[in-house]
Amino acid sequence: MQALYRLVARVMNTDLAVLITGESGTGKSLIARAIHDFSDRRTLPFVVAQAQDLQGADGPSALIARARGGSLVFDEVGDFDDEAQGRIVRLLDTLGSNAPRIMATSQVDLGRRMEGGGFRQDLFYRLGGVTLAVPSLRERVDDIPALAEHFLTRGEREGFALRRLNAEAMELIRAYSWPGNVRQLENTVRRLLVTSPEEEIGRSEVEAILGNQPAMEPMKGGGEGDRLSASVAKHLKRYFDLHGGALPPPGLYGRILREVEMPLIEIALDATAGNQAKCADLLGINRNTLRKKITELDIRVTRRRKLM
């Protein structure tokens, strides 16, 4: 993060376009805002644009008028369709003097998407004057305790009672993989502030909240079986390593199976429009076994017409 901050400081007052990449919840929008707020453009507008803002004959020109000489940020530009991408290209090609600083955020790999034909090459190179890669929270484990303490302190300023995490609770928070990154950590701490009856928050209270949240790291790549297996192995090895010489809490087998089974069954049910017979056949399990799993995992089943 310190290296990232140094790069931010160097590009802050340049006119280069900035592409900010990273997983959801890492703080990409906050980085864009910081670049604007600490730059020479801080007194000018900061405009965040979605794909719909580019629609209509006057959409692009209206964005430029709103941003004036400030900052214009295309939020999650990797999700923009080809028409919206083309409008951005034409917008960028018409910028003159007093143009806004252009920034974009993306949680997808735009280079890989471009190679697959899903993102325009001309837009990719126009947006990537400088690329800032925001690391995931699990890549900066030492930041987790400091961030948790920061959110506890901020909660006190917002009117919550003073709370602190005991050593075991902090150890568990540090060991968790945080697939939702800083945003998930902040929301978890806020829940602890609301639900914890005692001044000291213990391990059991943290376990109660994290037990209902994903424990696996986001899966990347093409989704092949070997990638999934490697991701699971990496997560488990890191989980064991973070406990030092001690073993993780008992029940690891059940917790990991639950994290895999739940999304698997939910996605299979969605793919079969909630038809449990078809879902059981797709999964290759007995229908009664599927019903039992649905009950145990508290999965909500909604029947609907599948549009193909």
Rank of each mutant, 00 (worst) to 15 (best):
R138G: 05
A49I: 14
L16F: 15
D79N: 01
V18P: 02
M170V: 06
N212H: 06
G128K: 09
R154C: 01
S136I: 06
N288V: 11
A175D: 01
G128P: 10
E199P: 02
A271K: 13
D270V: 11
F240W: 13
G245H: 15
E266Q: 11
R303V: 03
P197V: 14
L127W: 03
S231E: 11
V47H: 12
L110T: 00
R305T: 14
V8A: 07
G128S: 15
G222D: 10
L54H: 06
H243R: 10
M103K: 07
S136F: 04
R300T: 00
E207M: 15
D298M: 00
V108F: 06
T188M: 00
R303N: 03
L192F: 07
P145Q: 06
R305S: 09
G211H: 12
R157Y: 03
T21P: 05
I20P: 06
V134A: 13
G225R: 14
I267H: 15
S29G: 15
G117F: 10
D109H: 02
G251F: 12
G129F: 05
E23Q: 13
E156W: 11
D79A: 03
E156N: 10
L91K: 04
A49V: 14
H235M: 15
I31N: 01
G118E: 08
S71Y: 06
A67I: 00
V8W: 04
A271G: 07
G221M: 09
D37H: 15
E83C: 08
G222Y: 09
V130N: 14
R291A: 06
I201M: 12
P197R: 14
G211W: 11
I35T: 04
T21K: 11
A104L: 02
L247D: 12
L210A: 11
L152F: 08
I64S: 04
I64Q: 09
I88G: 00
D40H: 08
R255D: 15
G111L: 03
F38E: 08
M216H: 05
R203M: 00
K293V: 05
V130S: 15
D142L: 13
F38K: 01
M170K: 12
R90Y: 11
E139K: 15
R68C: 10
L123R: 01
G59V: 06
E205N: 04
D241W: 14
L44V: 10
Y5P: 05
T295M: 05
I209H: 02
Y176D: 10
